[in-house]
């Protein structure tokens, strides 16, 4: 290689190296190495813009329990921006309920949530709704599992049934005659509780005697008559369990009216607002229930969640409701609350 060529070559190499060095340091302040997109969670928000229309159907419309449910449901629908139809039969009659559902089906709803009076009778109409593309869930009282997506149960029926029996026994000192005033004979939830009351009775309380189980069809007037009749028929009667919300107030009123305060104790499922007076004056001892408003709220919340394509999860924290449990296709809202003379003032439903 000629010397004349070598030196310029050397110079050139040096210049290139310097150039590379300077190019590198003059590219700005940063050099981006890696980027990634954060998780996409905006999709759900977009869907929210669609306003769902749902229908919540109680067993009957005009008893305090279902009116409390309605209140919760309306709150939820407002907060979650949904259109809500809360419509039920005037009487707890399954035929009336069926026609109510049929009426609702024509109103172009996305979902129907039913508290079933008679699971068997309701099955065809719910199937029909499902075939129309309407989602069906049940709350408070279930139907056959094939006719709905899931069932929202307030409490575990076994827990509740055994607890009611325990409360009865506690007030009767574990022995004596007692009767059960139940709701409609066909309602699935009530029959389930009744089953567990009887089991608990057989297992633990041999000195107690169940004299009669009388249905009331959730009619307050009828319930009162039945209570009066029971106490007259069984003078040694020591206690009454009201197995549906109309039972305990009717029984307590009968105790008062017959002057049997202290003789006959009354426990059962009923709301604190209905029982407050009886608990305070000693006509009733313990009322057990859950928050029906919470039940209404939860029903609407889970309806929306289902419409958005998400099944309820076990231990899910539902806003304004708390944690729920999911067992199979049944949602359990929580634990039952006992209302007594001491705490009944804390509750406003």
């Amino acid at each position: 290689m000629s010397k004349k060529l070598l030196f310029p070559l050397f110079l050139l190499t040096t210049i290139i190296m310097i150039y590379i060095f300077f190019i590198k340091s003059s590219q700005g302040d940063y050099e981006i190495l890696y980027t990634y997109e954060p998780e996409e969670r905006e999709l759900a928000i977009e869907q929210e813009s669609k306003k769902y229309k749902i229908a919540v159907v109680p067993k009957q419309h005009n008893i305090p329990y279902f009116r409390a449910v309605e209140k919760g449901a309306i709150d939820a629908a407002e907060e979650l921006e949904m259109e809500l139809i809360y419509q039920g039969p005037a009487l707890a009659d399954s035929d009336l309920q069926i026609s109510t559902i049929q009426e609702i089906m024509d109103q172009n709803v996305d979902l129907i949530a039913v508290s079933a009076i008679d699971p068997n009778k309701l099955a065809p109409v719910l199937k029909e709704a499902q075939n129309k593309g309407i989602e069906v869930i049940t709350w408070d009282s279930d139907v056959l599992s094939s006719s709905r997506s899931f069932f929202i149960n307030m409490v575990n029926p076994e827990t509740l049934g055994r607890h009611l029996m325990d409360m009865m026994a506690l007030t009767m000192d574990d022995h004596g005659d007692f009767a059960i005033i139940t709701g409609s004979a066909s309602a699935a939830n009530i029959n389930e509780w009744l089953k567990w009351i009887k089991i608990q009775h057989e297992e633990y309380y041999p000195n107690m005697n169940l004299v009669e189980v009388v249905p009331t069809d959730d009619n307050p007037a009828k319930a009162y008559e039945i209570a009066i009749d029971l106490m007259k028929e069984y003078p040694d009667l020591k206690g009454v369990i009201g197995n549906s919300s109309v039972g305990p107030p009717a029984a307590a009123q009968a105790v008062m009216d017959l002057g049997k305060k202290g003789e006959v104790s009354v426990v059962g499922l009923s709301s604190p607002s209905e029982m407050k007076g009886y608990l305070n004056n000693g006509a009733a001892q313990v009322s057990t229930l859950w928050s029906p408003e919470k039940l209404g709220y939860l029903t609407v919340s889970l309806s929306k969640q289902l419409l958005e394509g998400e099944y309820p999860n076990d231990l899910q924290d539902v806003p304004n409701v708390g944690r729920i449990q999911v067992k199979g296709d049944t949602v359990i809202m929580g634990e039952p609350i006992d209302f007594t003379k001491e705490n009944v003032d804390q509750y406003d439903f």
Binding site: S25, D29, Y30, E31, I32, L33, T35, E37, P38
Partner: peptide, 12 residues
């Protein structure tokens, strides 16, 4: 310069 990722500063 980036929200999710990484970069390298190019100072002296």
């Amino acid at each position: 310069p980036v929200f999710n990722g990484s970069f390298k500063t190019l100072s002296e």
